[in-house]
Design a protein around this nucleic acid. Structure first.
Length: 212
DNA sequence: CTCCCGATAT
DNA sequence: ATATCAGGAG
């Protein structure tokens, strides 16, 4: 009998041994840049986001630049990241709100952040964890898939998955753990053909044991 | 639940 | 051709 807490402990240990130096793979120099980069990262690889932001941040250096920019032009500038119409609208609107309601300062509070257009708990937790040292579990596509495969959650809703994970992962590890799971998801526990043969979690993994 | 959406891997 | 990528909003 291996329960969730035991699986979580084993997983934390495994990740620390194999993904010790995982960190944010989005490139940024300040909270403004990480916020924009994370919005762009929805359903897009970080590699592509980095390619776009490399030139994007030379043109747009702060929220004023996005607020004053033409919407159509922002769309073209971020087009390769996909969902470019929604993302451009959200970035422009969010820039206006931060300037007008928050006096140009990003609110360091998840309950305020998620009120902003285009920002959900995933994006908010990325920003808070990496720029402000506020622990948060980032439930993205990798964390969701792997948590379900390992049986760390039975839920499909990201908010509920986040709650389930907060119960079994030590709070001080939340941010680091999220980066580690994402690296694990990219290299071992991939969506398509997971490398169960070389995965040390195999013996406690429902998914691995349900495969042929 | 659906829609938004381009680029790459399989 | 289809699945997938650091999701969020209506």
């Amino acid at each position: 009998m291996t329960n969730r807490k035991e699986i979580a402990e084993k997983f934390v240990k495994y990740l620390d041994e194999n993904f010790a130096d995982s960190k944010c793979s989005l490139k940024y120099e300040n909270p403004f840049q990480l916020l924009i980069a994370t919005i762009l990262s929805a359903q897009c690889t970080d590699e592509r986001v980095n390619k776009v932001t490399a030139t994007l941040f030379k043109k747009y250096k702060n929220f004023e630049d996005f607020k004053n920019a033409d919407l159509e032009e922002i769309m073209e500038d971020i087009r390769p990241t996909g969902f470019f119409r929604n993302k451009a609208k959200n970035i422009k609107k969010l820039s206006e709100v931060i300037l007008e309601k928050y006096e140009g300062v990003i609110p360091v509070d998840i309950n305020e952040l998620v009120k902003l257009p285009g920002i959900g708990r995933k994006t908010a937790n990325v920003l808070l964890g990496n720029c402000f040292n506020i622990p948060g579990i980032v439930v993205d596509t990798h964390v969701k898939r792997i948590s379900q495969r390992l049986g760390l959650t039975d839920n499909d809703n990201p908010d509920k998955i986040e709650q389930d994970l907060m119960e079994v992962i030590p709070k001080e590890k939340w941010t680091k753990w999220s980066h580690q799971v994402i690296d694990f998801g990219r290299k071992i526990c991939t969506a398509k053909k997971p490398k169960c043969d070389i995965c040390e979690m195999r013996d406690v993994c429902k998914f691995a044991n349900s495969e042929a």
